[in-house]
Simulated assay, not measured.
Amino acid sequence: MSSYPCLRSLATRGIDTLLASEHEHPPVYASRFRDETARLPRPREDLVAYKDALVGLAARPDVCTVVPMREEDAYVLSRYADEFERYVDLVVPPMGTLRAVHDRMLLAEAAERAGVPIPETRPLDEADDWDGRYVVKSRYNLLTDEYVESFPSGRADTAKDVTHVRPGETPGVEALVEGMYHVPIVQEFVPTDGEYMFAGLYDHGEPLATFQHRQIRGDSYVGGGGVYRKSVYVRELEEAARALLSELDWHGLACIEYMRHAETGEFVLTEVNPRMWQSLPSTVHAGADFPYYYWQRATGRADEIDPSYELGRGTHSPNGEVSYLVSVLRDDSPHVERPGLLGTLREQFRSMYRQPYFDYTHPDDLGVFVRGFQQLVSNRLK
């Protein structure tokens, strides 16, 4: 759904757009700002066919760039950059740099070189002490044969499950490896009093625009993508993010997730996503128009970028708020105390009253929200 703020941002500035998807009727197609659409193969089933179809669209004389909306896009645009750059200008990291953030072991090494706090990280098959508080998660943001030799050629997938391990218990290593198709990582659990996002658009190591928000609620009480966020500026967070991206000589979009350590106050790195982010409507609502920034850089207008934004702008994801509430009823963690149901409802209604802005509910373009709600209900009833 982050494609919608891209569409709206560019279309309202008179820039023609071409929406491409493997789905026949994604919610964004219901927007009145839609110009043209194209059907793509499913990237998780045939990544090369997906790439070939995108290259075919990029070769059109009226297409000037391609915006990476998800991990598969960032991967395809970086791995096959030479094929795309025959026709369009991209703002994406080279493959070696992309690997350094898609592989959380390499990311941990880069963070250490940059002097940026990161949880103790090691492969699961090297972990032998379970007396502390740990979580098990995928080593890779995206699974492909480029990263995991045993993964089926030409396919792509993600392993999003995060296992919170009870102190003193040894997790089932074989089952975790089998379920994730590779040896995942173990990270120490970080007690947090706040989650934050730093977003940036970089030009070969130099920031063109940056943005921060505090994630007040995620789609689960134990973590996840932000569903209630408020724009902020924290100098220490800016310094930590810039140090990491400078170490990586970053180029392109970066969405970096941080936890503020409840005991030390340090901003501890969680992950880096090299694409547009789930909470993009919140970013644009605060005035940080990253879809337009990307277009400006790709078309040689980087000097026209205005990176300012408003502080204190809060936004909600309606579907995400429902997911958070469901997590309070269903999820469980030995490390995070479950919030009370009534208190959760009070906080949700209070924040919605104080910050009554909801993703995809623009009065002049409600078709996207309606289509998305219809699909959500349909999927839940299946």
Rank of each mutant, 00 (worst) to 15 (best):
V326M: 13
M197I: 14
A111D: 08
L18T: 08
N319T: 15
S282C: 04
L341S: 00
F369R: 08
I118E: 03
Y147C: 05
R8C: 07
G367E: 06
P291R: 06
Y140P: 01
S378R: 15
V55Y: 02
E83C: 07
T121F: 02
D35H: 12
V76M: 03
K51T: 12
P307A: 01
G252F: 05
Q375V: 09
E112H: 13
Q215G: 11
V136I: 15
G56L: 07
T121V: 07
Q212S: 00
R122P: 03
F349C: 09
Y196F: 15
G115W: 05
E238L: 09
R113H: 07
P93S: 08
D131A: 14
T37Y: 07
D46R: 04
S9L: 06
V222N: 07
A108S: 14
F267K: 02
S327P: 06
L325M: 12
I256M: 10
P119W: 05
V183E: 03
R99S: 12
S3F: 06
T299K: 06
V377S: 03
A240Y: 02
P93Q: 06
S282I: 01
V48L: 14
E146G: 10
D359Q: 08
A240V: 12
L245T: 14
R86E: 14
H182Q: 05
R235C: 05
L40V: 09
A30Q: 10
D82I: 11
